[in-house]
Amino acid sequence: MTPSRRAVLPLLALPLLAQGKPPLRVRPRPGTAALGVRAGPDPAAIAPSAFEVRLIGRGAPSDVVRMESWYGRGRLLGTVSVAGRDLLLIATEGTRGTGVYQEWLVIAGCDDAGVLRVLGIEVLSCREVQGLSGEARLTGGVVARDVGLRVTYQSNRILPLPRREGRPPRMAAPARERWSTFLPWSGAGALPAPASVTTAGPMQRQADATRARVAALLASPVSDLIAIRPGLQEAGLYELGALYPATEPG
Results as ranks from 00 to 15, higher is better:
1 M>W: 08
2 T>H: 14
2 T>L: 15
5 R>M: 10
7 A>V: 05
8 V>N: 03
10 P>W: 03
12 L>T: 10
22 P>S: 07
23 P>R: 04
25 R>A: 15
31 G>E: 13
32 T>L: 11
39 A>E: 13
45 A>I: 01
46 I>R: 15
46 I>H: 14
47 A>I: 14
56 I>L: 12
64 V>M: 12
72 G>L: 07
76 L>T: 07
77 L>S: 02
80 V>G: 08
81 S>E: 14
87 L>G: 00
88 L>W: 11
89 L>R: 02
92 T>I: 05
94 G>Q: 00
95 T>G: 08
95 T>L: 11
97 G>P: 11
99 G>H: 02
104 W>S: 00
104 W>D: 00
107 I>A: 00
107 I>M: 03
109 G>A: 02
118 V>E: 06
120 G>R: 00
128 E>D: 09
129 V>Q: 12
131 G>N: 09
133 S>Y: 13
137 R>E: 15
137 R>N: 13
138 L>W: 05
143 V>Y: 06
145 R>Y: 13
145 R>F: 14
147 V>Y: 15
150 R>F: 01
150 R>S: 07
152 T>H: 11
152 T>I: 06
154 Q>T: 08
157 R>G: 01
158 I>V: 15
163 R>G: 08
167 R>I: 09
174 P>E: 00
175 A>D: 11
176 R>V: 10
177 E>M: 01
178 R>A: 12
180 S>D: 12
182 F>V: 07
184 P>W: 07
184 P>F: 10
185 W>K: 00
186 S>C: 12
186 S>R: 13
187 G>N: 11
188 A>K: 13
191 L>C: 00
193 A>Y: 03
193 A>M: 04
199 T>C: 05
200 A>Q: 01
201 G>L: 05
201 G>W: 01
202 P>I: 02
209 A>K: 10
217 L>Q: 08
223 S>Q: 14
224 D>W: 05
227 A>C: 03
227 A>Y: 06
230 P>T: 01
232 L>S: 03
234 E>R: 13
243 L>T: 02
244 Y>P: 04
245 P>K: 01
248 E>T: 11
249 P>G: 05
249 P>V: 02
250 G>F: 11
250 G>W: 08
